[in-house]
């Protein structure tokens, strides 16, 4: 029995050895995810990790450190050895962490080296099936009729799910109350069970539950309809100019050697151009958008500024 086990664990090492480049990576690389397993970010990390491990010739381990909108994980990675063996799968919340929380223990621009932009992930506004809402317009009508009466579930205080709600409230002139959960799974459960009438959840989680008629999808939070789900309206169709979609990217601790970053960024570029990975990401509600290290580093300060502004509005209203 033991021999079989050893043989199996050795498999990835053998297949990888063929393409392995000299030096980095010499041992498994860990991608730290700031959300609980089973959610959208976790799926992204595992799908990318699986493909990337073929490219790098090393196993990619996924480590979940959920809490405080992923900022706990970010601070953890920022404090690790800058050797390219611990990477952080960041998303928009990472950029606004310092605005939302008192002391996150990292700076989005100073503490990290950007590696690559991976994808954008539309969120979905979902409603429990018992709520009489069948379009974005009817949602706005219902909620604006009873200010302060309706709750919506989020994946935690200051997460993009929460910000999307706050931004929608501001732009559509609504007054709702956010209910933070610890991650996406419990948040969507509360909408399915009817404990909370609405919620902002990842599109991939929403579509799988909607298939079973456990909830209704009101709309997506990107500017226009998502190609793979043409039947789901964009909230922007009724609330002009509304857009609040998080994006996902990979970061390494500051001072990671340049050659290591380049190896990673290039390997991710190859992995992301893989059609199988592309389609499995699209199937799960992501819009894959690979942006290499240099270009992404150039536009990162702008992204931080834009989202921080949105977040500071939230900070005031809380």
């Amino acid at each position: 029995m033991k021999r079989i086990l050893v043989a199996l664990t050795a498999l990835p090492l053998i297949t990888g050895a063929v393409q392995a480049q000299e030096g980095y990576p010499e041992r498994p690389v860990t991608i730290v995810v700031g959300f609980s397993p089973g959610g959208g970010m976790d799926t992204l990390a595992r799908l990318l990790g699986e493909r990337l491990s073929e490219e790098l010739g090393q196993e990619i381990a996924v480590e979940n450190r959920p809490g405080a909108g992923g900022t706990i994980a970010a601070a953890h990675v920022a404090g690790t050895e800058p050797d390219g063996y611990t990477l952080y799968l960041g998303e928009t919340t990472t950029l606004i962490g310092p605005v939302i929380f008192d002391d996150v223990g990292y700076d989005p621009l100073e503490s990290f080296e950007p590696v690559a932009h991976l994808a954008a992930a539309p969120l979905a506004l979902v409603a429990n099936p018992d709520i009489p809402v069948d379009s974005v317009e009817s949602f706005v009508d219902l909620v604006s009729g009873s200010p302060g009466e309706y709750f919506y579930a989020t994946s935690g205080v200051g997460t993009v799910h929460h910000l999307a709600g706050e931004i929608l409230e501001n732009q559509a002139g609504l007054d709702m109350v956010d209910v933070p959960f610890q991650g996406g799974s419990p948040s969507i459960t509360s909408v399915v069970s009817g404990e909370v009438p609405f919620g902002f959840v990842s599109l991939n989680a929403a579509t799988s539950q909607a298939e079973g008629d456990n909830l209704n999808i009101v709309g997506v939070t990107v500017g226009e309809r998502v190609p793979s789900f043409p039947d789901i309206p964009a909230i922007a169709e009724a609330v002009e100019g509304f857009e609040a979609a998080p994006s996902q990217f990979l970061m390494a601790p500051a001072n990671t050697p340049q050659p290591v970053l380049e190896t990673l960024s290039d390997a991710i570029g190859v992995a992301m151009s893989d059609e199988e990975l592309f389609s499995s990401l699209t199937d799960r509600g992501f819009l894959p958008q690979y942006i290499g290290m240099e270009e992404f580093a150039a536009e990162l300060p702008d992204r931080v500024a834009t989202w921080s502004e949105a977040a500071s509005v939230v900070g005031d209203s809380n």
Binding site: P37, G38, R46, T189, Q209
Partner: peptide, 15 residues
């Protein structure tokens, strides 16, 4: 039945 993991271990199995 729901596709919703109750514990971290279950979430890994779901993964």
């Amino acid at each position: 039945t729901l596709g919703i993991p109750g514990t971290a271990t279950m979430a890994l199995i779901l993964g």
